[in-house]
């Protein structure tokens, strides 16, 4: 007989797999994004079951709240009808499916050697003892300090990159004879 946590875990796991599969297969991008949204909520549920309340809240606020709304904006802004008609990279469905099923089989075969039960320093009991948010903070600002800091630099790159790509359009619109002359002058100067 299933215990209640087991029941919920199986529900969340099956729902995540189903929603992710649907998100890839539906044709309407808006539906796809909404399915991903539902999937993120179910993932937050899995985090909750692992006593990771903070992570679950972040999952809902950041992914469901911010990232996906951004995706929705993007999907609304681009012309969807053109997107759908794009040719697929691998023409035949059969080839794609054979490759995908092969990969799935390989990964599942590997997954059998997962050892069940707690492992590592942060078992559920250890997390429960000092609370999850504190455990996360301790790890993030000691052992994982460096990747945490580099992530900040990546955000800087993303901000500058976004502006650099956006700047292009404005300049193209205001291209003047003067700027061309300037560029010619500098090429001659080289």
């Amino acid at each position: 007989m299933l215990t209640l946590p087991q029941f919920f875990f199986i529900y969340f796991a099956l729902a995540i797999i189903f929603l992710a599969g649907m998100a890839v297969n539906v044709r309407n991008p808006v539906h796809s994004v909404l399915l991903v949204l539902a999937m993120f909520f179910h993932m937050a549920g899995v985090y909750l079951m692992l006593n990771a309340e903070f992570l679950a809240a972040v999952q809902v606020i950041v992914y469901a709240g911010a990232v996906l709304v951004l995706y929705l904006f993007v999907v609304f802004l681009v012309n969807i009808k053109e997107e759908i008609r794009l040719k697929r990279f691998i023409g035949s469905y059969t080839t794609g499916r054979v490759i995908t099923i092969g990969m799935l089989a390989t990964l599942l075969a590997a997954a059998w050697s997962f050892k069940l039960g707690p492992a590592g320093t942060w078992s559920i009991e250890a997390v429960r003892e000092i609370t999850h948010t504190r455990a996360l903070g301790i790890e993030m600002f000691s052992h994982y300090m460096l990747p945490f800091e580099i992530a900040g630099v990546i955000l800087l790159v993303a901000v500058v990159g976004g502006m650099a790509l956006a700047k292009k359009d404005r300049n193209r619109a205001t291209t003047t004879e003067e700027r061309r002359a300037l560029m010619r002058g500098e090429e001659l100067g080289e």
Partner: peptide, 11 residues
């Protein structure tokens, strides 16, 4: 460290 490696590769 694997996470650092991954983040550096992204960088």
């Amino acid at each position: 460290e694997l996470i650092t490696l991954f983040i550096a590769l992204e960088l």
